[in-house]
Design a protein around this nucleic acid. Structure first.
Length: 584
RNA sequence: GGUCCCGUAGCUCAGCAGGAUAGAGCACCAGAUUCCUAAUCUGGGGGUCAGAGGUUCGAAUCCUCUCGGGAUCACCA
């Protein structure tokens, strides 16, 4: 139950009854909002309805507000109603309403806040998609966590979500990978390979792959020409790299449902060819020249005719090349085919999570999908900005040359999965982020991860204490559901209930905007509200959760704690952060 | 030069499809533990929402321009 949505419906219905046969009204209604007022002294709910509607109807906003106020005058749930400022209408609801909401929260359990807005709409979320040439780098972490949390969030709202990883297993970097692995194979056979030549991957994660090749093939490949071993080695090394990546992702609790191989798009009569043929038929492809970029022209600029996609017809800044000078397809060509494939699989709603260095790619991707789906499908590209790693307040240097490559695995091992995930989600994705090892590991209220987890552990602790202090009290789920909710009547309790009641609208707004960070901020707020109430109980023993003098009050308070616990749990689960019952 | 993102308190950031007196945390100052985990809480000072125009009942939020910071710019993936 979302009280704000309920009242939004009430207000709209009221407007329709107050202004019957008014054709100008309908198009205005979507702008009517019912939300919590910024200042709690203004009441429980606030609506802009009168101001939205007044001018187009030629009325005075405060007059409209007065009509609305009159409409709700006799509503039993409304304790008082006020017109404020330019025409805000502020409702204060009776305590009974809030108490009923609390009861409904306890009844829904951890399903409270689940939304039906997704209506099983198919959504494809592509994230990570790191090149399969080695273990994952820290740079990939933010996008990985973001995509994963977004997927959970949308599932929570009843979207039919597919989590997908696009494996770039077709480009030139895979040849290099195979050559690098072959070198390690020779090494495993006892040959002296000396220094790893520049341009090959030097990482020792390829050593086991070399061993595996040696075990499997003995020395049968050593003297063969590259053309005879390259495909075999590619298959094996790619397989190994994907295992490495999957293991890294598993450390963060991430598991994709689909690993889509780029290679499968290539080849004769493959998806790329088909897509290009289709685009040609539509007249979206032509032979032409591109202008060099303004400003500085690249040194090796080659002024040549090439096969181009009319991306500029679909909102991109310029047309884009599809075939390289050596005759093979560009990355973009296969990407068009890939996104067309997603569309053909039924995904009209696509989300792609990319790093900041790909921001220039957004328009052409959107252009491609528009073209290829006749405008039926669209893709929301979410860019995750850079993460700056800090140790002792100083940036961590990361140079590939010196081998100081910080891997995802290193970071997770050092600070833990929960802290990594929460910190990366406790910030808008499109703003850059400092990740300070010291702060992330700190176990105080300054660290939002522990602050929220501590609140959750405290909720659980209350139940442990209740079991111990009032052993005769039945605190089963059933008993909580049947508690006397009218006892939750203090100012402090009602305040906490109001906070809990916001969960459904937070979830919906976050899902709609594709912004999981809102979940993180909300549960941080809720944790603060809970800690606050807790401390009130320290100052005033009548506000303690467990009260030996009144079992009825205790039961009601436990129901409130249970409601908070459920929401914290749901929120943490969406973010992929664990909810420990106690902290040690 | 083009495109995209960012600019809100000393610092780190929120601000919910424009809404009321712009909010948290850190830091600083002053307080609260016989008591459900003080890993917490209460109070205080601190702002030209980068700047200038525009849109309207109303702008931190939308539009235009300027300034500052970052990313990116045929053929790589």
């Amino acid at each position: 139950m979302d009280i704000f949505a309920v009242y939004s419906d009430h207000v709209i219905k009221a407007l329709q009854e107050i202004f019957p046969n008014e054709p100008k009204l309908t198009p205005l209604l979507h702008r009517v909002v019912v939300e919590p007022p910024r200042d709690a002294s203004h009441g429980d709910l606030s609506t802009n309805a009168a101001m939205v509607v007044a001018k187009p109807l030629g009325k005075n906003p405060r007059e409209v507000a007065a009509l609305l106020a009159k409409y709700f005058e006799n509503n039993q749930d409304v304790a008082s109603i006020e017109i404020a400022g330019p025409g805000f209408l502020n409702f204060s609801l009776t305590p009974e309403i809030w108490q009923n909401i609390l009861k409904s929260v306890v009844l829904s359990g951890e399903d409270f806040g689940r939304s039906k807005t997704g209506r099983k709409t198919k959504v494809n979320i592509e994230y990570v998609s790191a090149n399969p040439t080695g273990p994952m780098h820290v740079g990939h972490t933010r996008g990985a966590v973001f995509g994963d949390a977004l997927a959970s969030l949308m599932q929570f709202c009843d979207y039919d979500v597919r989590k997908e990883y696009y494996v770039n297993d077709a480009g030139g970097q895979i040849d290099i990978l195979a050559k690098s692995a072959f070198l390690r194979y020779r090494e495993a056979l006892g040959q002296d390979i000396g220094e790893i030549p520049a341009g090959l991957y030097p990482g020792d994660y390829l050593v086991p792959v070399g061993k595996r090749l040696a075990d499997e093939f003995g020395n049968t490949l050593v003297d063969k020409p590259q053309s005879e071993w390259i495909e075999t080695v590619k298959t094996i090394v790619l397989d190994a790299m994907l295992d490495l990546i999957k293991a890294d992702l598993a450390k963060l609790g991430i598991e994709h449902e689909i690993f889509f191989s780029e290679k499968t798009l290539h080849g004769k009569n493959g998806a790329i060819e088909q897509t290009l043929d289709w685009l040609k038929e539509k007249g979206f492809v032509y032979q032409g020249k591109l202008e060099p970029p303004k400003g500085k022209t690249p040194e090796d600029w080659e002024d040549r005719e090439q096969i181009l996609f009319r991306a500029s017809n679909f909102g991109d800044d310029t047309d884009r090349a599809l075939v390289k000078s050596d005759g093979s397809y560009t990355y973009f060509a296969s990407d068009i085919a890939y996104h067309r494939d997603k569309y053909l699989r039924g995904f009209n709603h696509q989300i792609v999570v990319l790093g900041a260095d790909h921001s220039g790619y957004i328009k052409r991707l959107q252009a491609a999908l528009k073209a290829v789906s006749n405008g039926e499908a669209s893709v929301d590209v979410r860019i995750c900005q850079l993460v700056r790693l800090l140790r002792d307040g100083k940036p961590v240097k990361m140079s590939k040359r010196s081998g100081e490559l910080v891997t995802l695995s290193d970071v997770v091992d050092e600070v833990g999965c929960d802290a990594v995930r929460f910190m990366l989600l406790f910030r808008r994705n499109d703003a850059s982020l400092d990740f300070d090892f010291a702060k992330v590991k700190e176990q105080t209220k300054d660290n939002p991860v522990f602050y929220v987890q501590y609140a959750y552990a405290r909720c659980c602790s209350v139940f442990r204490v209740a079991k111990n202090d009032v052993p005769d009290l039945d605190i089963s789920q059933k008993a909580l559901e049947e508690a006397d909710y009218s006892l939750a009547d203090s100012k402090e309790e009602l305040e906490l209930i109001r906070l809990v009641a916001q969960w459904p609208r937070i979830v919906e707004a976050a899902a709609k905007a594709h912004e999981p960070h809102r979940i993180a901020f909300y549960i941080h707020d809720l944790a603060a509200g809970f800690h606050k109430f807790w401390t009130k109980g320290k100052e005033n023993s009548s506000l303690r959760f467990v009260n030996q003098d009144s079992l009825n009050v205790t039961l009601t308070r436990l129901a409130l704690v249970e409601a908070v616990r459920q929401v914290l749990k749901s929120g943490l689960t969406i973010l992929g952060v664990s909810a420990p019952k106690e902290l040690s």
